[in-house]
Amino acid sequence: MVSQAVSAVRARPRREREEEVLVWPDLVFVEFISAVVFSIALMVLSAFINAPLLDRADPNTTPNPSKAPWYFLNLQELLLHMEPAWAGVIVPTIALILLAAIPYWDRAADGQGTWFGTKHAGKITVWSFCIASLITIWLILYDGAKHVEWTEDIIRGTGLNSDFIWPTWLDWARNLRGLDTGINWSDLSFTIGPFTMFEDWRAIPLGIPGTTTDPWLLNLNFPSFLSQQIVPVATMVGLPLLLIGFTKHVLGWIQTRRDIAILIFTGFIAVFIVTTVVGQFFRGQGQELRPPWDIVVVEE
């Protein structure tokens, strides 16, 4: 591996002098102009828009909604859909490790130095960005039970049943937590011979009593484990894999690892942007989904 990297350095063709320009003035000029443009733009921005300064910090009055800085709102958004340990720590850690690992996985040296260097790179980027944004939005709406609201509105609107409400037998499909609260778990225990299996799904003993004090290990709350961990994690792993499979076998656009890297990286950027925007502009009191003009912060 080491020798490969070294030979990659050596293998670079010698630069032809005619292809080169002098840093002074050609590059220094571009740098200088861009710095001036940015300085002016930021000066103008700062002259017209003030940095926020609210009331003095008060640990006893909590603003609702309370939000992290915008670049962490993507994580705060995840927090609404899964176990905090996943949303706040494990997912971002894994995401950063995977990000840093890209060059060690996609090792082919060709295709560097040009924008969208593979045959289908452009298409893959646009496709991945759109589909990942759409699915993320759809998932957020689903977990916000928007389909319940809309179905009720539509059916009432048709006049067929003017006080239609979402049927209880579909409670499990209200949102993610429906898998926990919308299912009558105690109906699901069964007997094998003399034993009753899963008498209490909410306290499945896992550890040997006396060996651990961790309540999680002693009594697994399966319904909550399912809705807060298994399903979200399976979604985060499964959908990207499905996307790769579909793009490769159905669309036929994937030829190299570089294509997969582009597909997944673009999807990541799309999810990052969508969750950040939703967190910043569409979350009101109690982190409910709201249109931006409907968001008021109250202090409690």
Partner: peptide
């Protein structure tokens, strides 16, 4: 650093996330 409500609660939210590490 500005020690206003925005600062205080944003940092509270952020550090609570850190606290949830397994």
């Amino acid at each position: 650093l500005p020690w206003d409500q925005l600062a205080f609660w944003a940092i509270t939210v952020g550090t609570t996330m850190v606290g949830s590490a397994p």
